[in-house]
Amino acid sequence: MTERLLTVRDLNVRYGKVEAVYRASLDVDRGTIVSVIGPNGAGKSTLLNALMGVLASRGTVEFCGSDMARLTVERRVSQGLCLVPETRELFAQMSVEDNLELGAFTRYRRGDKGIRQSLSEVFALFPRLEQRRTQFAGSLSGGERQMLALGRALMSQPTLLMLDEPSLGLAPLIVKEILHAISDLRSTGVSILLIEQNARAALQISDYGYVLENGEIALEGPSSDLANNPRIIESYLGIGGGEEAS
C-alpha cells in the first residue's frame, strides 16, 4: 500500500464574504503527481496558497501524519512543503546562485552540509542556470525564471512540491522541457501537487487528478480516466463542445 503524504479534509478559504474554496478534500500519496485542473478563478491558486499557509483557512491539513493547520509558512517549509507560486516570487535583484542558495535556507539553519551538492544537482538538471549563475534573476527570460523557481524549490529538498501553473506564459518548447523535468522529479522521490491551465498536459504527466469548479471539487479520478471523461473533454480539453459534435 502506498503511503499517504498529504490529507486535506473540508478546507474552506474565504476572501471577505466570498467563499473562494469550499469544503475541498484531497489526498496526495508519496511519490505521485496529483493535478488540479479547472477554469480561471475556480480557486486553484487559493487552494495552494492555503495549503502553504499564505492564506488563512479552516479545515484539516495533515502532512506526513502531523497537523499543519496552525503552522506558519516558514514552519511548513522546514517540514518539507514547498510552493512555486504563479508569480514565481524570485529575488530579482540577486544572482541566480544566491536565489538557489536561499532556497536551502531552512536546511542551512538546521546545519545541513549537503547544500553544495544540491546546487550541483540543480545545475545538472537545468544546465542553463549554471551558465547564468552570476546573472541577476531579474535579467532571465521567462523560461529560465521558471527553471530558477523550480530549482530554488528543489534546493529545500521538499517532500511535497506544489506548482502553480508552471507553464504559464512560456513558449511551447520550453513548456515541454519544464514538464519533462517535472515528471522526472517523481523518480527522485518528490511528490508533486500540480495546478495547470494546460489540462491535457497536466493529465498526461499526473497520476491522479481533481477538477475544481467554483471553489468546490467537482470531480476526481485517476488521470487517465479523467482524460477520457466526456465532461472533462468538453469543458477543458476542447474549446466548447462544438467541433466534436459536428
Binding site: 516558514e74 516570487e89 524570485l90
Partner: peptide, 10 residues
C-alpha cells in the same frame, strides 16, 4: 527585495 518570496523559502 521580496517579502513573499522570502517566506516561501522559509
Amino acid at each position: 527585495f521580496n517579502r513573499n518570496g522570502a517566506r516561501l523559502v522559509g
